[in-house]
Amino acid sequence: MKRRHITSAISQTFGKFASKEFPHWFQNIVNRSYVGLMGLDMSEFHSPETYKSLNALFTRHLKEPRHYSLNAADFISPCDSLISECGTLISDYALQIKGMRYKTDEFLGQNFSDEEKKSIHDGDFINFYLSPKDYHRYHIPTNMKVLKAVHIPGKFYPVNVPSLKKRLNLFIENERVVLQCETMEGKTFYMVLVSALNVGVMKVSFEPRIQTDADVVGEQVYEFKDLYLDKGDDFGCFEMGSTIVIISEKGMFEDIVVKAGDKVKFGETVATLK
């Protein structure tokens, strides 16, 4: 039997601790300590003592819905995050971070055809890094159709900026869920959820069969016929911080209005569609 990478063992151990519901007095200490240590802004959420586990705190929901542009051309951020990198692909090369590039053909895995992979060559990309203090849920960035989801097992290396600078092809090595999407105008883009250390679980609400950080061998493919999702819909969460990469076909975006180093929140317009 193939041995799992040490990063998986660490993530599973932390996941068990985070999921455990301790006695209220102790859980309150754990939650408040985490909020203070990481500097969480809880102004849009319930108070820390209301969450029965650390994982419940990680995956907290907003108390009130956020407002975002209803203009169909406005493509919104799917999460609260740092833009670690963004720009235009050179053929199938995208930037992991400045000076470190990787091939999107490898990033998407083995279950997309050469034609499907070529559809995004010379297109655009935006990397959204969620730190441990960020709101961990993710949302739909534009009215769209989901064609396919592919779960690719892998490692759980940290995805913070120092790690991105040190490890070539980190995005390709880490476990990920690749969503093949289509805008209402028929343009193709991929939204990729990338795991990280202590982020064993990436939940996808519209496909509960996807079980990340599990004993899965090989890529798992899920195809959909008429799965339409609306801008702003909550479709899952990371259990801790991680990264979402959006890669679009050439000409899908009129303009990307963010740059590397920007902090964005879910609902903020990050690009405009043609």
Score class of each variant (00 low, 15 high):
Glu106Asn: 11
Lys52Glu: 08
Asn71Ala: 08
Asp41Ser: 12
Cys86Gln: 05
Glu106Lys: 15
Pro132Ser: 03
Ser119Val: 07
Leu70Thr: 09
Ile97Leu: 08
Leu57Arg: 07
Asp122Tyr: 09
Arg101Val: 09
His61Glu: 12
Gly87Arg: 03
Phe125Gly: 02
Glu49Phe: 14
Pro78Phe: 01
Glu85Val: 11
Phe128Asn: 01
Lys133Met: 10
Asn55His: 12
Ile76Asp: 04
Gly99Asn: 08
Ser53Cys: 14
Arg60Gly: 00
Ile97Asn: 03
Ala94Gly: 13
Glu116Arg: 13
Gly99Arg: 00
Ile126Met: 10
Asp124Cys: 09
His46Arg: 15
Arg60Asn: 01
Glu64Ile: 00
Met100Ile: 13
Ser119Gln: 09
Phe58Lys: 02
Glu44Leu: 06
Ser69Asn: 05
Pro48His: 01
Ser43Glu: 08
Glu64Phe: 00
Ser43Cys: 05
Leu62Gln: 03
Pro132Met: 01
Ile90Trp: 08
Thr104Lys: 10
Glu49Ser: 13
Ser43Arg: 15
Leu37Arg: 12
Asn71Lys: 07
His61Gln: 15
Asp92Met: 11
Ser91Ile: 06
Lys133Asp: 03
Glu49Gly: 06
Ala73Pro: 00
Leu57Gly: 01
Tyr129Pro: 00
Arg66His: 10
Ser47Cys: 08
Leu108Thr: 08
Met42Leu: 15
His67Asn: 07
Phe58Asn: 03
Ile76Cys: 06
Tyr51Gly: 07
Asp134Gln: 04
Leu40Arg: 09
Tyr51Arg: 02
Leu70Arg: 14
Asn111Cys: 15
Ile120Cys: 12
Gly39Ile: 09
Tyr93Thr: 12
Ile76Thr: 12
Pro78Asn: 03
Tyr102Met: 11
Asn111Met: 12
Ser47Arg: 11
Gly99Ile: 01
Met42Thr: 11
Lys52Gln: 14
Thr104Ala: 15
Ile97Lys: 02
Gly123Val: 07
Tyr68Val: 04
Leu54Asn: 02
Cys86Glu: 03
Leu82His: 13
Pro132Tyr: 00
Ser69His: 04
Asn71His: 06
Lys118Ile: 11
Asp80Pro: 02
Thr59Glu: 05
Cys86Asn: 07
Ser131Phe: 03
Pro78Val: 04
Ser69Gln: 04
Leu89Trp: 13
Phe128Glu: 02
Ser81Tyr: 02
Asp80Cys: 12
Ala72His: 08
Phe128Pro: 00
Phe128Ile: 07
Asn127Leu: 06
His121Phe: 06
Ser91Gly: 11
Pro65Gln: 04
Pro65Asn: 05
Asp41Asn: 15
Leu62Arg: 00
Lys103Val: 12
Asp74Trp: 06
Pro65Ile: 00
Lys118Trp: 05
Ser81Met: 03
